[in-house]
């Protein structure tokens, strides 16, 4: 089997909530003790991303999907775990060493209104990464490449001296994509790139992303909460809950036979157009904030099938017959 493009193992990230030294001291049983509070955004994530595939990560607000994207890109450092790009470890590099990988991996952010510099024209936005990563390019070569890029994302090259505010949301997101593509990466992380856009414009951006994937054999890590988009676009889907992947499956398998109780609830909640109204599976409560490292299954508090073992022991990912992997005691034991 070919080496996966990105391999993530045991990734953890905790954000400290009392950073300052003074707020870390507490009285505990009559003694002054130092105590660090933290929110555990990622609790041991294992994932691989193969070349040319689209891995979609879905989950509710606060499940750690954006943190995962930022950690992979090196925008925040992980607390534990390893990230490999092909056969090189990339999670502990300094800025200088990372430069090479910045060229290979790019990111598209959620809000095209905030992620483009309002005081830079489209030309400036695009020329900066191109001339930075290709110092040997002449001015003419840079210009040529920018024109090509803009045409390829469906924006006329003549508008390259305009500012972001002169474009619509969809156009801005296409410029963001052009910026990510400008250094010719192999891998693009897209963090909710469609959620600020209208349905018809979503289709434009999604089509563009698929075209580019075909042209350049790109791999995507696509983070979203819109399951309709996932069904359409993903090769494989990872469902996250409270900083853990609870189900990982090929798209078709996940949508036809969801296994994990959380995935089932999530899929049943999509408002669909067809008229046979299936009752959504109601989840009790809301996503808790993981201030303590969870013992047992992360989904225990909301799971209708939880038993004593779920409270005590954390389930491992188990490969199923149809190619999906699920972390659930109930499925392992055949209760579900």
């Amino acid at each position: 089997m070919a080496t996966p493009l990105i391999q993530i193992s045991g990734l953890e990230k905790a954000f400290s909530t009392n950073e300052s030294w003074f707020s870390q001291w507490r009285f505990h049983q009559g003694k002054l003790k130092r105590h660090k509070d933290s929110v555990h955004a990622l609790n041991g994530v294992n994932l691989t991303i193969n070349q040319g595939e689209t891995l979609c990560v879905v989950g509710e607000t606060g499940c750690g999907k954006s943190t995962l994207a930022r950690v992979i890109m090196g925008l925040t450092t992980p607390s534990a775990g390893e990230i490999h790009y092909l056969d090189q470890r990339i999670d502990q590099l300094n800025n200088r060493q990372r430069m090479f990988f910045r060229r290979r991996m790019q990111m598209v952010f959620q809000n095209p209104y905030a992620s483009l510099n309002p005081r830079m024209t489209v030309y400036q936005t695009l020329s900066e990464p191109i001339s930075f990563h290709n110092p040997q390019f002449s001015q003419a070569q840079v210009d040529e490449q920018i024109d090509e890029l803009l045409e390829s994302v469906g924006i006329s090259a003549s508008s390259s001296d305009r500012y972001p505010h002169e474009f619509s949301g969809g156009q801005r997101q296409r410029i963001s994509l052009a910026r990510a593509l400008s250094v010719e990466p192999d891998f693009i992380v897209a963090d909710e790139p469609l959620s600020a856009l209208d349905v018809s414009v979503q289709a434009q951006v999604l089509n563009l992303m698929m075209d580019k994937q075909e042209e350049r054999n790109l791999s995507y890590l696509f983070i979203t909460h819109d399951l309709a988009v996932v069904e359409h676009f993903a090769t494989r889907v990872a469902v996250m809950y409270l900083g853990r992947v609870c189900e990982l499956a090929p798209t078709r398998t996940l949508f036809s036979a969801p296994k994990h109780p959380y995935t089932r609830a999530l899929l049943s909640a999509i408002p669909r157009l067809d008229s046979n109204i299936a009752q959504p599976i109601r989840l009790i409560g809301e996503v808790p904030t993981p201030t303590e490292k969870p013992i047992g299954c992360v989904f225990q508090a909301r799971c209708p099938y939880a038993n004593q073992r779920c409270y005590e022991q954390s389930p491992a990912m188990v490969l199923q017959n149809d190619g999906s992997s699920v972390a659930c005691h109930a499925i392992e034991e055949g209760r579900l």
Partner: peptide, 24 residues
């Protein structure tokens, strides 16, 4: 029609979506 056809579930997975050209 365009609005409904642009929805991802209206197209087979992996196919190009039907977009409405231009914007509002």
């Amino acid at each position: 029609q365009g609005l409904l056809n642009a929805l991802p579930q209206m197209t087979l997975p992996g196919q190009r979506l039907n977009q409405i050209q231009g914007s509002m």
